[in-house]
Computed example of a mutant assay.
Amino acid sequence: MAYSQLQKIETKVHLKASAQQFYDVFCNRPHHIANISPQKIQSVQIHKGEWGTEGSIVSWNFMLDGKKFVAKEVVEGIDKENCKLSFKVLEGDLLGLYKSFKFNLQVTPKENGSVAQWALEFEKQENHIPAPHTLLQMGVELSKNIDSYLTQEHN
C-alpha cells in the first residue's frame, strides 16, 4: 500500500483590486472567469445549488500544461466576512493523481488593493507524483488576469 499524507503548497498574489471585488468573482460569479481568462478556463458550470452558496456543486473545465482537465467540486466553505473560500474536488482528472484535493482562497485587504492567498491541500495517489505546482501557478496567473479585468473595468 502506498504511503500517503496530506500535503500543502501555498502562494500569495498582490492585487490592485479590493479584496471584496476579487472575492466576489470566485464566490458569486466563477462562471465569469471563463470570459475573463478563456485561455485557462474553458467553462465553469453549476450542477447543484446556487452560485455563492456552500454545498453547491460546480465543475471547472480548464487547461493545464496544454491538456484539458475537468474538476467537479463542492463549495465546502464560504466566509464572506473574511473573504475565504474552499473547494473540495469530488471527481475529475485531479483525482487520478491525488486521493484528495482541496483549493483554499483567502483575500486580505491591504492599503492599496489586496492579497490573494492560494493554498492547495492534497494527498498523492503514489509517492512519485509531483506536487501540483503548475496548478498553483495557474491560480497565480488567473488571479492576475482577474485583477487586471477588475481594475480596467473601473478606470
Rank of each mutant, 00 (worst) to 15 (best):
S114R: 06
L105C: 06
L95V: 02
D24N: 14
K72Q: 06
A17K: 05
Q5A: 05
D93V: 10
L85M: 03
E153D: 01
L105Y: 05
N104A: 08
N104Q: 08
I9M: 10
T11I: 01
N127V: 15
K80Q: 12
V44M: 02
V140N: 04
R29G: 02
K110T: 15
C83A: 04
K84T: 08
T108I: 12
W51C: 03
L15Q: 02
G66R: 07
A17M: 01
G113L: 08
P38V: 04
F87Q: 03
E141M: 08
M138L: 15
Q152D: 13
N112R: 12
T151R: 12
F101S: 07
D147Q: 11
K144M: 07
N82V: 03
L90H: 10
I41W: 04
L6N: 09
C83G: 00
D79V: 04
F26L: 13
K72R: 03
A131Y: 09
G55N: 04
L64E: 09
N61E: 11
M1I: 06
E76F: 04
P130V: 08
T151G: 02
S100M: 08
Y149E: 11
L105T: 05
F103I: 11
Q45W: 03
G113P: 03
L15I: 01
E10K: 09
S114K: 05
Q5R: 12
V44N: 01
H47W: 13
V74C: 07
D93A: 12
F22L: 08
L94Q: 14
K110F: 03
K84C: 13
E91Q: 05
K8Y: 04
A19W: 06
